[in-house]
């Protein structure tokens, strides 16, 4: 789980070009969108592609994706569960 979180944070920084942000700056339970990391709806597009590129998972269900995008914790739990299937 921690490996996934670490990979995810590094991917977020690289793919979303988050400037002056280190993996340790991203809190596990902070919201990714809005007040937390400050991502917007365009970043959601990039996130879906990121999950596919780095973890080989296609996020086809919109509601599932919305829930998974709540935080790093939620997204890594989603990825772990999907990889276990």
């Amino acid at each position: 789980m921690n490996d996934i979180k670490e990979t995810l944070k590094k991917a977020l920084i690289k793919e979303l070009k988050l400037e002056d942000v280190n993996p340790q700056d991203i809190e596990d339970d902070a919201p990714l969108f809005g007040e937390g990391l400050g991502l917007d709806s365009l970043d959601a597009i990039e996130l879906v592609v990121l999950v596919q590129r780095h973890f080989g998972l296609s996020m086809q269900d919109q509601e599932e994706a919305r829930l998974a995008f709540a935080s790093v914790n939620a997204l890594s739990a989603y990825i772990e569960a999907r990889l276990a299937c």
């Binding site: 709806s41 996020m59 919109q62 919305r66």
Partner: peptide, 11 residues
Amino acid sequence: GGMSSALAMVQ
């Protein structure tokens, strides 16, 4: 729809 719209498009 904000994020919902974005997700629907990419999906």
